[in-house]
């Protein structure tokens, strides 16, 4: 289950990153930001659904551990932050950390709330 989710999640991250960069060629790493926030929202919905017993354990492994786990990334996020800081783009490095963590958490909270409203 984890492997099936991962085989879909990892290339989705790669292709989304590429598509976003083609449209927004900026210093700010919008591609990684987009997949991370989207993954937090999906995992939030799934976690809410699991706690309402609307999703099974295998769905959790498939979509949560497999798909969302590989769709999102911490290694690319931290590497990009370091490169921005080194490129004297300190503002963007700090903005990347604050925006990614802020939006990721917001998406996670919104996802859980949505799922609880839908399945409660």
């Amino acid at each position: 289950m984890v492997i099936i989710g991962a085989v879909v999640g990892a290339p989705t991250r790669y292709l989304t990153d590429m598509a976003v960069q083609k449209r927004h060629d900026t210093v700010f790493p919008w591609g990684t930001f987009a997949v991370n926030v989207a993954g937090c929202l999906i995992l939030g919905v799934l976690t809410g659904a699991v706690s309402e017993e609307a999703a099974s354990d295998s769905v959790r492994l498939l979509i949560g551990t497999g798909f969302c786990g590989t769709l999102t990334t911490y290694s690319t996020f931290s590497y990009e932050t370091m490169r921005l800081a080194e490129a004297a783009a300190r503002f963007f490095a700090a903005a990347n950390v604050i925006a990614s963590v802020g939006a990721g958490l917001g998406a996670a909270f919104a996802g859980v709330a949505l799922a609880e409203a839908a399945w409660a």
Binding site: R13, G39, L43, G44, T47, G64, T70, T73, T76
Partner: peptide, 20 residues
Amino acid sequence: GTGVLGGFTTFSTYAVDIQQ
């Protein structure tokens, strides 16, 4: 870089674990 390390690390579990 993109596959193994990107798949190994996770941002979604990090955020949702904080929420939980």
